[in-house]
Design a protein around this nucleic acid. Structure first.
Lengths: 162, 162
DNA sequence: AGATTTAGTTATATCTCATAACTGTTATGT
DNA sequence: ACATAACAGTTATGAGATATAACTAAATCT
């Protein structure tokens, strides 16, 4: 920990020191993610999608017929919170909730044609936006970044990578 | 984009494919950050701190006398949202809001002794928890991770690093 | 058949984060 | 100097994300 001045009165534009927090990987991740998330929001806005509706849509397109519980688990969120999300996508006719004949409690989620098309456009927009955002970070650095993030995600950091 | 089965009916436990999203660095960051953030919350709970109150407290300890606007800018949040945060810290007597004599509009934020002590304990707890979470990720990988995150944060991926 | 579990839903509460509008104070500009 | 603008902090408000409890209906288990 350090302080900015001996008098304890940083002038109005003295840079605020975050040296203590810079020690943490989590702090860097939060800050970097903020940038990515802001960019993502801007990118998705024209499609009237947010990060979560986008994620749900992509997963439904890629996994036709999956059920809400599966999607909630995949998105790491509680089932109740998914309901409103899907209500929104369904109301916009981007997905359908079809009853599963073999289990009448469940719904099989499927993207409509419009949903599939919007998804394709959104994915393409997000791809090019991220490409632009990461321009200058070479393939090796990206691969290393993803590999490390994945080890953190999987709880994992403990074992050596594959 | 891929689908799980030809019949479009993934069985209840078929793994949900997120292959399309795995292409994105942002997706990996969100997932990894969720893990870190969950760990952080658990770590801070005994101190009755959340990520934001913790961050604010550390910054105040490290930058005694800074003003709310500066802190809001440093934390990348809007001034109104900071008010409640500081109300909480002040109510718990962890910080004080002292009027700045030279500018009676502003408050100089300072940590109390209790605040400084709590901060020290919390930082130490977070340090060891993150250390445990990242156990197995060697120094080089960590340095590379932080360097890349920083380049993303600074908008800066375009230039070569120092 | 009766009890338990599961899928989805409703209701509710908290936290995060953004904007607009207000008070009081300082800085500007003519 | 005085009117106007800019600024610090606050209040009020709303959207979005996330968690829990409790409910309905359907499947499963004994």
């Amino acid at each position: 920990m350090k302080n900015a001045t001996a008098t304890s009165l940083p002038s109005r534009d003295a840079p605020v020191s975050d040296a203590t927090l810079r020690v943490f990987v989590g702090y860097h991740m939060k800050r970097a993610f903020n940038v990515i998330q802001a960019d993502l929001s801007r990118t998705l806005a024209p499609f009237d999608l947010r990060m979560l509706t986008y994620t749900a849509l992509v997963l439904i397109v890629d996994n036709p017929g999956l059920r809400q519980s599966q999607l909630a688990a995949a998105m790491d969120m509680e089932r109740p919170n998914l309901v409103v999300l899907l209500d929104e996508l369904e109301a916009r006719a981007l997905i359908t909730r079809d009853r599963v004949p073999t289990d009448r409690r469940a719904y099989a989620l499927r993207a409509t044609l419009a949903g599939t098309q919007l998804c394709k456009q959104a994915v393409s927009a997000v791809t090019s936006h991220e490409e632009r955002l990461l321009d200058g970070i070479d393939k090796d650095a990206r691969a290393a970044l993803i590999a490390t993030l994945r080890r953190i995600e999987t709880g994992h950091a403990k074992e050596e990578s594959a």
